[in-house]
């Protein structure tokens, strides 16, 4: 798979094939014909919705004007209102905590398991590694409802488990604990993703390095710190940046477990809640939802561009 991924990077910039000269003009038009559906598709189903989202954030839309179409242009007034919202900075902070905690634990756990499987060479390694992918492939609503039930305060499994040690039941999904609980579920969801990339990164480290190190008497622990981690740095950077972009926009796992109530409200669930008029909002607020969405988009793109730059640098 490593060859495949490196080729992905090079693909869009592949030089033109050496087609026979007289055919060139024909080839040119053929290329356009093959690509045109994709271009139209991207314009209609990516560019247009993005423009529409921006337009909605600059006009005052509500249920009435949404249907009648007479929403007045208000410039940046909605953005001003969003920034001035009493909860705005709290939500930005919660989004930051959710993202940082999710990334840190997903990475650490994913790396531990990847290293364990990588240095393994034991019989069950391959099938069990496959099993680890399951949570990643299931619909999030399936995992979300299951976690919600396990975190049920009086009949949930987590509290029964804590009870074995005499601990008091935890109100996992209450306003104060909601952020921790959705982060736990989200970490669980993200482990397979981290495991797979880090595992393929580990496979890219030349075996000779480890052989030379063990001949020099380096312990496995030293080998991990002196070889594995430094060699894995580029993959780590890519994993974390991509994870960051993905985690910023997470809605479903949070929404299904808590509807973004209490501390579990993030920019993404806030925008989603206002767009459907549920959760903390209770009323549909298209314009505010679009404005928060645009802020979220800008944040995701900022980190996304860093990711692209890092990826480019890695190839050269």
């Amino acid at each position: 798979m490593t060859t495949l991924t490196t080729r992905t990077a090079a693909a869009p910039t592949t030089p033109a094939p050496e087609t026979a000269k007289p055919k060139r003009r024909g080839a040119h038009w053929a290329a356009i014909a093959f690509v045109i559906p994709l271009v139209l598709y991207l314009l209609l189903f990516y560019a247009y919705p993005l423009v529409q989202n921006l337009t909605m954030s600059l006009h005052r839309f509500d249920r009435g004007t949404f249907i009648s179409g007479g929403a007045p242009f208000v410039g940046l007034e909605i953005y001003r209102a969003v920034f001035a919202h009493p909860q705005f900075w709290t939500i930005v902070w919660q989004t930051t905590v959710f993202t940082a905690v999710s990334l840190a634990f997903q990475y650490l756990i994913g790396l531990t398991i990847a290293v364990f499987f990588h240095r393994g060479g034991f019989r069950l390694a391959a099938p069990l590694r496959g099993m680890f992918l399951v949570p990643w492939l299931l619909p999030v609503i399936v995992s979300g409802t299951t976690w919600q039930w396990m975190m049920n305060p009086d009949a949930g499994l987590l509290n029964s488990f804590l009870g074995l040690f005499g601990a008091d039941p935890v109100w996992w999904l209450s306003a104060d604990n909601a952020l921790m609980s959705v982060a736990i579920a989200n970490i669980w969801l993200g482990i397979p993703f981290n495991l797979v990339i880090l595992y393929s990164g580990l496979q890219g480290i030349p075996k000779e390095l480890y052989e030379a190190a063990s001949m020099d008497g380096a312990t496995p622990w030293q080998q991990f710190w002196r070889i594995t981690l430094p060699m894995l740095r580029p993959v780590t950077l890519i994993t974390l940046l991509l994870g960051l972009v993905y985690t910023l926009k997470v809605v479903d796992i949070i929404w299904i477990m808590t509807m973004g109530t209490g501390t579990s409200q993030t920019l993404a669930t806030w925008a989603y809640g206002m767009s459907v008029g549920k959760g903390a909002s209770g009323v549909i607020r298209y314009s505010e939802a679009s404005a928060v969405g645009t802020i979220l988009l800008l944040a995701a793109l900022a980190f996304g561009l860093i990711y692209i730059a890092a990826q480019r640098k890695q190839e050269h």
Partner: peptide
Amino acid sequence: VAQMVPAVVMSLGLYSI
């Protein structure tokens, strides 16, 4: 870049269209 666009943003734009 398209893969980085949050689904909420897409759903809002598509809803209006």
